[in-house]
Design a protein around this nucleic acid. Structure first.
Lengths: 180, 180
DNA sequence: CGCAGAATAGACCGGTCGGTCCATTCACAG
DNA sequence: CTGTGAATGGACCGACCGGTCTATTCTGCG
């Protein structure tokens, strides 16, 4: 069975992504995870803030895995982008359109903390770096690749927001036609 | 002097944009606005939710004004986009990089409410519509114009997020080179 | 002036927040 | 078995939350 610490971080992640850092109460996380309060403060001595950072880290890694899965078998860059967007749209639908960017809702809504901002910008850099790597692998120059990655990332972040506002994942699915 | 109702909505808007709906307490808004609680519930009988909707509406209108100011005197579409982004970057800097999209932080973080989502998607539609109008005015076909507007809006929404994570408005300033 | 409704002022409320603390149970080394 | 630290379980706390309610002050009309 899954680690208590991991289970807490994952359940907290889902909730944070839907309602933001301040919109989720500790007790709600505990109830969903089926874990008592004592355990939380054993695994996350700094409480809610630690929990949010761990949740964001897990979600960030999951997105990296989706990037890999999308580009590894793609014949070219545009193809990889399309697969990537479709996978994210599916993820969006699974959670009933209630979910935004898995990390920005968690960390941007949190306390005005340097640690939170650093974690967030680090995660974004990792995502863009990974996408740029694949773009280069498919023949783009480093400069081109970084620009492609940035363009994709920015639009994607916007698509997540718009999709949530509309309750419709099609914005995400139509993204490849817009940025490639 | 400014209307008490308006003052409340504006101050609430700044706070919501920084910390999200649940991150801001009523008392904090009242303190900043220098207004007692009774006045708030006189002007906004439904309390915090009404306040957030009014705040978003004001911010949305302000953005429309910035769009107009940017495109009205621009010689072409690309020029208007550049001015628009520079104005937004300046707005971002004025608020010390602590501010995101003026409406999504307020409304997406709020209660999982149909009224909130509708208001948000309506505001986004108005923004994109206005930008598309200018694009057509500068010679683009309707289809081209809508695509241009969507591309700009999505990247802009993403830029706001990234700028906030980095605490640096340059992402927004570099946007025209990326989407035009 | 007197009156009425709008607006302001703030005490007060029940509920929930994040967090602390300690008793208990578990897993495992000796 | 016993001992020990990790992990769990949950009662409890003060602070703050959004919201209600009543008293008072302002404002404009007759």
């Amino acid at each position: 069975m899954m680690d208590t610490r991991t289970k807490l971080a994952i359940e907290a992640g889902f909730l944070f992504q839907q309602k933001g850092y301040h919109g989720v109460g500790i007790s709600e996380v505990l109830e969903r995870a089926g874990v008592p309060k004592g355990s939380l403060y054993h695994h996350f001595p700094n409480g809610k803030a630690d929990l949010a950072l761990a949740a964001a880290e897990i979600a960030a890694t999951e997105v990296l895995r989706i990037i890999d899965a999308s580009f590894d078998q793609a014949g070219n860059y545009a193809n990889g982008v399309t697969t990537f967007c479709y996978k994210l749209a599916k993820y969006f639908d699974i959670h009933e359109g209630k979910i935004g960017c898995p990390v920005s809702a968690t960390l941007l809504g949190g306390p005005d903390n340097a640690a939170f901002r650093d974690a967030l910008s680090g995660i974004f850099a990792r995502w863009m770096g990974r996408i740029a790597d694949y773009a280069m692998q498919f023949g783009q120059s480093q400069q081109e690749a970084e620009q492609s990655a940035k363009r994709l990332f920015l639009s994607l972040e916007g698509s997540w927001t718009l999709a949530r506002a509309r309750g419709d994942s099609n914005v995400i699915r139509q993204l490849p036609g817009l940025v490639c």
